[in-house]
Amino acid sequence: MNRALRVLPLTAVALMSACTSAAPAAAPAPTPTPTVLPACTKLPDPVLPHSAGELTEQQSGVYCLPRGQRVDVFLTAARSSDLWSQVQASGSILAPTNTGVMTAPIGVTPAMFVGTTDGTSVLTSSAPSGKTWKVTIVVKG
């Protein structure tokens, strides 16, 4: 058996081995790194139907929102010239939803969000006087 013939089976085995080991690396999605979500507090009870809970300008910190459920926000201005701005949610785990079901009182900035995927989002608002409001929402299924 010449040298070429002796090497060929080994090369073929090596190739098959390489192919079989390469294939799994191409097909499946990479193993996600487990996300450690921060500890959170239960939301205060809601005042509207279909809601998991509500937040006002009195709250701060980290609150839990079950995935697929809604959190309502009501920020009340201390005076008419110091209205809270529209509530912003960071990232994409919270989706804005219908606030139109209610008539909000004058001076109240409402917002509603549904938790769409697990993760954290920061809700923020500010007032002309320089006051700021921030709450972290932890969405988990």
Partner: peptide
């Protein structure tokens, strides 16, 4: 494999939220 890893990083985010102030 590289594409599979890159795809989630390129996923689009929702548009910024806007809401009426009701004041």
């Amino acid at each position: 494999a590289g594409l599979a890893i890159a795809a989630p990083a390129g996923a689009s985010e929702l548009a910024p939220h806007h809401m009426n102030a009701h004041a």
